[in-house]
Write a protein that binds this DNA or RNA. Structure first.
Lengths: 188, 188, 188, 188
DNA sequence: AATGAATGAGTTTTCATTCAT
DNA sequence: TATGAATGAAAACTCATTCAT
């Protein structure tokens, strides 16, 4: 194998599956090597440590998702449009790549040295969109941060509901309902 | 968690603090012993294993919280009253015992092999209250589980917002706003 | 075993023997544990790492030896007396604790982050004594450092000769010859 | 070491520099490949193993140095001449190729399973020259091996002094002083 | 000859748990 | 009950060497 990129892909796929299935801290290098069909030492040709793998996997996908959210909301002129686009993208992502999505949700709340409040951050995108809407008077005034936090809650908690079997898939079927609930909650 | 020799209390306090600070899987017996000011072996006089400590700490407080939620909502005759009581109790708990609250939030999504869907479960309490309100026609119809999930999101996500510094404490100052948002989101 | 000091002694003895026999870098934790009759993990109760063990072993004995050299030369009024005392102490140490002495010689020239030029340093003691003798006019003038270096060479190289079988033990039988050679070399 | 493709020369230079800088056992193939600007596998086109590289590097240069010492002392008729030639050659070598010289000093006391007592051995050359001088009555009688060992000490220890900064370079400036000290030490 | 990804045996280190005191 | 040294199994990581290209 001259090109290591195939191996890297195998590592990514196996890592995501294992992290989601048994937890990040509970996944060993041996587990990973076995699942990816590689030798244990091979991991270290691609990442300096297990931790670096988690970090890289998280931040690259987290940033990519933030970019997609940004891309879908930017063209919309008003808050309702932006919100709808964000909610729809959330749901679409969850349905298309459930394992990856769950990995991001899992790691986000974890021991991982707090992820920077960069712009490359889905949470930040939502905060920005909501803050602008409030500035524009498109939604009622709320204490700083509370409005965006509520939108995020209305999106993320149903995602957990799907993961835990409290809600039937696919996520997309709830997109309009959730977007509407967000608008009402914010008094849009 | 009611009882407790002085040693047991020291273990509990140190364990919660460490779990929240660095994560459950990342906390070692040595860390714990040091923080609690006890010898490493002493833990095993009180718990058969580290895992049992986590389990016990989680489930006893989780159940106690469920009972408190149940107790505050039960006397209220209508959904608005029950919801308000639940939200207020959530906020009060967070403000009174932030470390414990964070521990419960943390473990709920991790570490612990999925927590049973007992009745002794705050999530279950919310689901029940919302389901009853929907049955009574107090709120609009929503897909099974979605309504309760949204209420939980409107409560939990702001809690994370407080933890991550996106929202200023105390939590209780947002109680009424959140309860109102829940009612609007559910079309109560 | 309540007191870990017996274990620490076993570790020291086994470590010195192995380091001298096969080299520091070539000695594994497994070797050491086996030779000391302890479990591999036990080493880490006493030292944070293999490297720390080497460092500690070296610097404590190196400093102790420096103190002994200092102690034997200090009371002597003139250079000849000081030199004789130093040479005799060197030889006595080599004969009494050949393994420890070889360990110090071995590590001294090794990859180990250069040992500080402290006063707690046998080399420093010799440099000081020679420099003072030169100041007092007890020996001929030599370029800075050269005289002391020559004394050290006349002491250390025969030690290597003993180790490599070029010279018959005990070292002490050569003490007077070496001291005399030093005095002549320095034009004392 | 005479021959050499460009690659082989790069390997030699990088290896010597690394061995001296961080130690033989501490230098990895990866380090070496990186420093030499070659791929890791390339080393094995030129040497069967890392160990063989060290061995070859050491023994070829060690033997070549022995030959040079032999060549410079042989024509001299008396001990004083031979000694002066040896000392001068030592110093010249150190000044001309300090890294190579340090490598030889380093390995001589370590890593390598004891170097054979061949004739192709600088130490052996000194021993032979000194022994002959003693036979001829050119120097006083000393216990077997001690005289040569002292000459070596008077040469090598100043070399270490230069390496550790105790002595200012170049080494050659001390050649006459050292040769004279040797003669006095041996009572020539 | 040269490459560099892959290997896997071997190394250091960690850590929950045990047990003699 | 409390201690803390000791354990040993399992973890992460290293690295000389191989081999397909």
């Amino acid at each position: 194998m001259r090109d290591g990129s195939a191996t890297k892909r195998k590592i990514h796929a196996a890592a995501l599956a294992l992290f989601v299935e048994k937890g990040v801290a509970e996944t060993t290098v041996r587990d990973l090597a076995q699942a990816a069909g590689i030798a244990e030492g091979t991991l270290y040709r691609h990442y300096p440590s297990m931790d670096a793998l988690v970090r890289d996997l998280f931040s690259s996908h987290y940033a990519a998702f933030a970019h997609r959210l940004e891309a879908v909301q930017a063209p919309r002129p008003d808050f309702a449009g932006k919100l709808g686009a964000i909610v729809a993208e959330f749901c679409r992502f969850f349905d298309a790549e459930p394992v990856l999505f769950r990995f991001l949700m899992l790691v986000q709340h974890q021991a991982l040295p707090r992820v920077a409040n960069d712009a490359d951050n889905p949470v930040e995108v939502v905060h920005r969109v909501v803050a602008e809407a409030m500035d524009q008077g498109e939604i009622a005034l709320h204490p700083a941060g509370l409005a965006a936090t509520m939108v995020l809650g209305l999106l993320l908690q149903p995602a957990f509901g799907l993961v835990y079997g409290r809600l039937a898939p696919p996520f997309s079927q709830y997109a309009d309902t959730i977007a509407a609930a967000c608008r009402r909650a914010l008094d849009a």
